[in-house]
């Protein structure tokens, strides 16, 4: 098997080729074949995207003078970095590779939230869509079909009495699709699968690469992988408390609890291994993470240390 660095070198060569002025559509097709050929290729490409996304959040004038210090400076006309955004949008979508990057969200998605943000919208067909932290969706409502696609993050959908449009509604993620029949349900995209939690009504769940159809009843929760649908086997059900600004858990380990809280705040929030197994129950604010951490440190033998503005550590109490 090829070494990881080979995939990286290939991915870099593809990137350079695709950003050339003379890139042909045959090149793009060849790239699409390459990226879908193996998981390693796809991973290498994702790494390039996430590495380059760092640059895209830097204002170019500031970046040139700060990062380029030492290299001789030139006077440049200001240009937007939109070229690269266009590149990724153009070649990433047809193959289903997702843009995971916040910065691009406002250009590319219909609705999106930043880390720590939450929003609620009512679509023109009467469907209510609530987006949790760091989430992105595209919406396509026509007279023949209505598609809501979750690209990343988590959303709660409440279907309304279809206003004007009675075409079938389908909720899609990279893992498959969900067809609701008069319901309220939560969809959360994890890296490997999509967790669907049904609160009311019925749902039909179909994984992307398998013809099976799974019908869900109220209060059921399943994990949809591209090849299969399986019940959520952990004892933690997704609570809809996030809609009102709380993380509700029942006997969850501190390790996982902190990982959940970390979704709502930029920067790093880490937990010391010695306190991983403390069990947490109750509802904690996701709008005021500091308050939640303080509350934890009053209840459990832990202390919270802010190492830098970006790194907060949950440590054993001394």
């Amino acid at each position: 098997m090829a070494d990881k660095s080979d995939h990286m070198a290939d991915a870099v060569a593809w990137y350079v080729k695709l950003t050339s002025e003379d890139v042909s559509s045959a090149d793009k097709q060849a790239w699409a074949i390459w990226v879908n050929q193996s998981k390693q290729n796809a991973i290498a490409w994702e790494e390039i995207k996430s590495t380059l996304s760092k640059f895209q959040s830097i204002p170019s004038d500031i970046g040139m003078s700060v990062l380029g210090r030492g290299t001789n400076k030139v006077d440049l006309n200001r240009r937007a970095t939109l070229k690269h955004i266009a590149l990724f949008a153009a070649i990433a979508c047809p193959t289903g590779l997702l843009l995971k990057d916040n910065f691009l969200s406002s250009f590319y998605y219909d609705y999106s939230t930043k880390v720590g943000e939450r929003t609620q919208v009512m679509l023109s067909d009467g469907t209510t869509l609530a987006l949790n932290t760091n989430s992105a969706v595209t919406v396509n409502l026509t007279s023949t079909k209505r598609v809501i696609k979750l690209h990343q993050g988590e959303m709660m959908i409440t279907t309304g009495h279809a206003i004007g449009l009675d075409s079938p509604l389908s909720i899609e993620t990279a893992d498959g699709n969900v067809v609701p029949m008069g319901t309220r349900f939560n969809v959360r995209k994890f890296s490997e699968f999509t967790r669907v939690s049904l609160y009311e009504g019925k749902l039909k769940v179909t994984p992307k690469h398998n013809d099976i159809q799974h019908y869900m009843k109220a209060n059921e929760e399943v994990d949809m992988y591209t090849l299969d649908v399986v019940p959520n086997i952990t004892d933690q059900k997704i609570s809809d408390a996030w809609l009102t600004g709380y993380l509700e858990v029942n006997n969850l380990s501190l390790k996982l609890f902190i990982e959940e809280l970390a979704r709502y705040r930029p920067g790093l929030l880490v937990c010391h291994p010695d306190v991983h197994n403390i069990k947490i129950s109750g509802a904690y604010s996701i709008d005021d993470i500091d308050a939640s951490l303080n509350l934890l440190s009053q209840t459990f033998p832990i202390r919270v240390q802010r190492a830098t503005r970006f790194l907060t550590m949950v440590l054993p109490a001394t």
Binding site: E21, S60, T81, K83
Partner: peptide, 12 residues
């Protein structure tokens, strides 16, 4: 690299 990533300049 910076010219391509920050200024969005083409290779040429």
């Amino acid at each position: 690299f910076l010219l391509s990533q920050l200024e969005g300049l083409s290779h040429s």
